[in-house]
């Protein structure tokens, strides 16, 4: 069923978009100097598809406070019965280890 439940939060940051839908296979998450957001450091998330070239990327740069709000909103959205059912059924779970760190 349609949930029609949307968590709306104010955020401060910057985003780099693409003209159309993009298959993404990886999220790179780090807290470092941003490119565009007017902060010294930012929580940066790049949704990418490494097999499709470096331009296959949706990037966001958020203030730390905004990122925490996003975490809260995501957690709240995942409380929906539909999300809980998908999680319980382990739908769309990626195979193998997906956590990697580099330095």
């Amino acid at each position: 069923m349609c949930t029609w439940m949307t968590e709306q939060i104010g955020i401060a940051g910057a985003a780099r978009g693409v003209p159309d839908w993009l298959k993404v296979t990886r999220a790179n998450v780090f807290y470092d100097h941003p490119v565009s957001a007017p902060f010294d450091h930012a929580l940066i998330i790049d949704f990418v598809n490494p097999d499709a070239g470096v331009g296959a990327r949706v990037g966001i740069e958020l203030s730390a406070a905004s990122a925490w709000e996003l975490v809260r909103a995501i957690t709240a959205a995942l409380e929906s019965p539909e999300a809980q059912a998908d999680l319980a059924a382990e739908r769309h779970v990626l195979p193998g280890p997906e956590h990697e760190t580099v330095s």
Binding site: R16, V35, S36, D46, R57, G59, V102
Partner: peptide
């Protein structure tokens, strides 16, 4: 910026 993002991720 995309090239830098890919490089930084590595």
């Amino acid at each position: 910026a995309d090239v830098a993002a890919a490089a930084r991720a590595e």
